[in-house]
């Protein structure tokens, strides 16, 4: 989570999907002052959604009016990460409307009628929260992937213990050292080892100088 927070949004393309009232003109004018390129999208017909692929192609940021029926499909997954940041425009402040905006991936809200002094804060929050959320989601995916592959790690440790007559701690040290040497993740290395694509480069941990990784 070392990402710098963004503060200059010049050149970003904002797409506004709104019913046309509630200070949307103010929103457009402030976004213009902040250097964004603003466009209005047609409101999708009842029961239809914006095409996500098209959104990604046309916009870097989406403002969605919570008073409209779902503009984006609400099946964005547990992390609720749409292809671009979504900022919810809140007219009717009812839990149902707010929930619908959250489900469409909104990471910030802007009350209607839009107050000029609130736009930058919302933009700042919405974009940075989206990027953090995306980063966390990809981190989580990576962790889950490693969890799925821990069977290969256990299996490799057992193989090494048998082949090299070492205990589990030493086998793990050997594994770590060799995977690092090959610039592979432990899991990738183990999978290669089991499938015979990779062999240990050092016969025993004692052959190498002790490192901080040794326990």
């Amino acid at each position: 989570m070392s990402r710098n927070l963004l503060q200059n949004f010049r050149g970003a393309r904002a797409l506004i999907v709104a019913s046309g009232e509630g200070g949307i003109d103010t929103l457009e004018s402030v976004l213009g002052k902040l250097g964004l390129v603003v466009a209005r999208a047609d409101v999708p017909e009842a029961g239809r959604h914006l095409d996500l692929a098209l959104v990604e192609e046309r916009a870097d940021l989406l403002f969605i009016d919570g008073d409209l029926d779902s503009v984006l499909p609400c099946d964005l997954g547990a992390a609720r990460t749409p292809p671009v940041p979504v900022i919810g425009l809140v007219g009717i402040e009812a839990p149902g409307r707010l929930k619908a905006l959250m489900n469409q991936g909104a990471t910030a809200f802007l009350r209607k009628p839009v107050y000029a002094g609130a736009v930058y804060t919302t933009l700042f929050l919405g974009v940075n929260q989206y990027l953090l959320r995306k980063e966390m989601a990809s981190e989580l995916n990576a962790q889950q992937d490693r969890r799925r592959r821990r069977k290969a790690v256990i299996k490799t440790i057992l193989l090494l213990m048998e082949e090299h007559h070492v205990d589990d701690d030493e086998a793990y040290v050997m594994l770590r050292r060799d995977s690092m040497r090959r610039r592979q993740s432990l899991e990738d290395y183990c999978e290669d080892y089991i499938s015979g694509r990779s062999k240990l480069t050092a016969s025993s941990p004692e052959a190498e100088p002790r490192t901080a990784a040794r326990r």
Binding site: N4, L6, Q7, N8, F9, R10, G11, A12, R13, K33, L34, G35, D60, L61, V84, Y120, V127, L131
Partner: peptide
């Protein structure tokens, strides 16, 4: 005033 033209852009989208 917002230094949108004078400071480097943070192009998350780029």
């Amino acid at each position: 005033p917002y230094l949108v033209r004078s400071a480097p852009t943070d192009s998350w989208f780029a």
